[in-house]
């Protein structure tokens, strides 16, 4: 039964299977998708309640508030990224599979983004409307959130991998990830502000895009290394 040259499954198969499994799990527990979304919406509601409903102020602060809320919502969803895998032992299975771990980590991160990042991008226009942002600004907001949440998921996966299995992991995760995420927030929110002021904003988009590409190519390796260390 044991062949000399067993055929190893390809890496795209591994990527696809990991992503698919995590999406399937999320589908069976829709709370995981909805909770960060509600959180996002609620933080965006808190702000007008705190500073008052004046449209000029809301237009001025809107991009920043939406971006901070998106950052916090992503952070909230991150600590579950590897937690259940760690608890039920499937993380060990991933660590000891024939697939390169960075590919599997990327698959899981991709699923995380599809579950938590993409929905934020999709509902952001609704919330942006309540802040009286114009259609062009909303487009820029969606574009920056699209790129930005990719960056945040990838960065966050490193933090989640470093803190998996630690007590008080959530607070620690925020402490690790927030300073790393600051450039993303800074680029994203200011690009939207520039668009709101009718200033040229392309630089920010390019920079975010470059960040996303760099994170996409480097973060999975860091995440894989961190997962191996956390599981020692």
């Amino acid at each position: 039964m044991i062949s000399d040259k067993p055929s190893q499954p390809g890496i795209f198969r591994g990527l696809y299977a990991t992503t698919r499994r995590d999406l399937l799990l999320a589908w069976k527990r829709p709370g995981d998708i909805l909770n960060p979304l509600f959180f996002f919406a609620m933080v965006c509601t808190l702000f007008p309640l705190a500073v008052g409903p004046s449209p000029e102020q809301l237009i001025f602060f809107g991009p920043g508030v939406l971006w901070v809320a998106a950052l916090l919502a992503t952070l909230l969803s991150l600590n579950t990224l590897f937690l259940s895998d760690h608890e039920d032992g499937s993380l060990e299975q991933l660590l000891l599979s024939a697939q390169p771990l960075p590919v599997l980590a990327l698959g899981k991160t991709l699923a995380h983004w599809l579950i938590s990042g993409l929905p934020l991008v999709i509902i952001s226009p609704l919330l942006a409307m309540t802040y009286h942002l114009s259609a062009t600004v909303v487009e820029v907001l969606m574009l920056t959130l699209f790129l930005g949440t990719i960056c945040l998921s990838l960065l966050g996966s490193i933090g989640a991998a470093l803190t998996v299995g630690l007590h008080r992991g959530t607070a620690l995760l925020s402490l690790l990830i927030l300073p790393l995420a600051m450039p993303v927030l800074l680029l994203g929110a200011n690009t939207v502000s520039l668009a709101a002021d009718n200033d040229p904003y392309a630089t920010g988009i390019w920079a975010l895009g470059a960040y996303a590409v760099a994170a996409l190519s480097l973060a999975p390796y860091a995440t894989a290394a961190a997962l191996r260390i956390s599981n020692e």
């Binding site: 470093l162 300073p179 790393l180 961190a226 020692e232």
Partner: peptide
């Protein structure tokens, strides 16, 4: 030993940042 390695990964990610 684990703290050493984990924080080393963080420092390397941080230095790029």
């Amino acid at each position: 030993a684990k703290a050493d390695k984990a924080s080393a990964v963080l420092a390397l990610v941080g230095v790029v940042n």
